[in-house]
Nucleic acid binder design. Structure first.
Lengths: 279, 279
DNA sequence: TGCGGCGATACCCGAGCGATATCGATCTGG
DNA sequence: CCAGATCGATATCGCTCGGGTATCGCCGCA
């Protein structure tokens, strides 16, 4: 099996249309048909069921689509990482959600910078749930994830620390004067529905609350009395004056982990992980 | 980058000798040289430092070797899994160390077999530390690992259960009458050095104890009074009459986890994991 | 029933892959 | 210090194979 064949197959499997796939690949349709047929013959398996009106994946085709996507991104990752490893000035890309400020990150970067032979650390600020893709296609070398929100599927991780969550409320709200609350107190406020974050696929779950993408948006909407949210304690470190944070006793704890692709060979990654986990 | 190029590069990087690599690949040496040069030009990076007497990896070459190996095994895994997904009779390969008998496995297999639409489960008995390779190159679909002995690097896992460890001793040994011992009691017996298991690389660590590969060997050597060992409680379930097991209070607990490759699409894998983790 | 959409087939051309022959550099033994 | 051996690079050739255009055959639809 060659990469070219996989690229072609993935294109067809995603478009479910030979013509469109050929266009996307920048080739004509006949060689595409031929390549897929040849791939099927090599594997000894039908990958697509095709009539002249409809193209569908077979069971085997579905498996190959999943595996193929992973392989293709592994290949682009390998190219990127190889090029980067050759750069005169070694550097390290650390992916973090734009919310993740916090002492932890500062301390980590300072501690690593103090190491002998430390590489330049570039911060790659990303949207929620993007870390995994960034690590898997080689755009980032390491990431900070927040369990259980982010999924560490297929990554190696080390736990850095665990914290509780707080409810963020308008300072004037009755609950804001409490020293602690429970999830039920926060989720049952009819006038303040819980904000919705995008899911792993990038789309929002159904619900009444406002749709938000980052903390600035969230805080503004809370200050306006339109929504509320339960977030990790450290994310509420420097809150606006018109907001209040109240610990939520029974909210699931949030664990910050450092994650990296399983076969990373970069010395800088190993160093950073060592610095992050020692103490 | 094409698979062919990667295969060639990995061969040269492993042999560090163009002639030998060409032989291993079953081609002549000139096209191999040419392909590597072309790969280096495409990546814009030297991968190998070559004089006429010596071939060595560059920094970038080392990175590409690690990534390339992973990609190559992912490709063979994709081929195997695609073919298997097309088989008329769906089956599932579960990799377990030959020691892992125990109730857990029996219960798991029974529970899964009772599911509607259960696939045939083939057991693949393997040596220590082989699970990961088997999963990564598609010879197995799921595995049972024992942390902290086996490493779940690059795999997704769910914890099944945790147990203590016991010291296995000749029944006639003085310690065998104790109801519990400590690590120090067992490791400091001059006449009974602790047995050595192969490490992740397949080679044995240095030390005085006997080299063993499986429980039968181990038990025989213990019965002969040549060695002793600390093993998970469940592995000592049906012990020979001339052996005794004593709980070791301060031995690290052993966690059995079920592990699978991160982007598995097989329904049977999902079912098995669901069955394994529910209760 | 004729038309349009879509994948498969037929056929041709050029790039690229592999083989052989040979060169040039470097290490080794006498 | 030189002759031979070793080993990677280069030159050149033939052929496979990947890509293009033209066209067919099938099927849904008006």
């Amino acid at each position: 099996m060659e990469i070219r064949e996989l690229r072609y197959f993935v294109a067809v499997a995603e478009e479910l249309h030979f013509g469109k796939a050929a266009q996307r690949l920048g080739i004509a349709q006949p060689p595409l048909s031929r390549t897929i047929t040849q791939l099927e013959r090599r594997l000894g398996t039908a990958l697509l069921e095709r009539s002249s009106r409809r193209v569908a994946l077979t069971e085997a085709g579905g498996v190959l689509l999943a595996e193929g996507r992973a392989i293709l991104s592994a290949v682009t990752a390998a190219e990127r990482r190889t090029r980067r490893a050759a750069a005169a000035h070694p550097s390290l890309v650390l992916a973090v959600k734009s919310g993740t400020a916090g002492e932890l990150l500062t301390k980590l970067l300072d501690a690593y910078a103090a190491e002998p032979g430390a590489a330049t650390v570039e911060l790659l600020l990303c949207e929620a749930h993007q870390h995994q893709r960034l690590l898997q296609d080689g755009q980032a070398d390491v990431a900070l994830l927040h369990l259980p929100f982010d999924s560490p599927t297929g990554l190696d991780t080390e736990t850095l620390y665990t914290e509780g969550q707080v409810a963020v409320l308008p300072a004037s709200h009755p609950l804001a004067r409490r020293s602690q609350v429970r999830m039920a107190d926060v989720t049952t406020l009819p006038e303040l529905p819980i904000a919705r974050w995008p899911g792993p696929g990038g789309s929002y779950p159904e619900g009444p609350g406002a749709e938000v993408r980052n903390l600035t948006q969230l805080f503004q909407l809370i200050a306006l009395g339109r929504t509320t949210a339960v977030i990790p304690e450290s994310a509420s470190a420097d809150l606006r004056r018109d907001l209040a944070a109240v610990p939520v006793l029974d909210a699931p704890p949030v664990t910050t982990v450092i994650a990296w692709p399983p076969h990373s060979r970069l010395r800088a990654v190993a160093d950073l992980i060592r610095v992050a986990t020692r103490r």
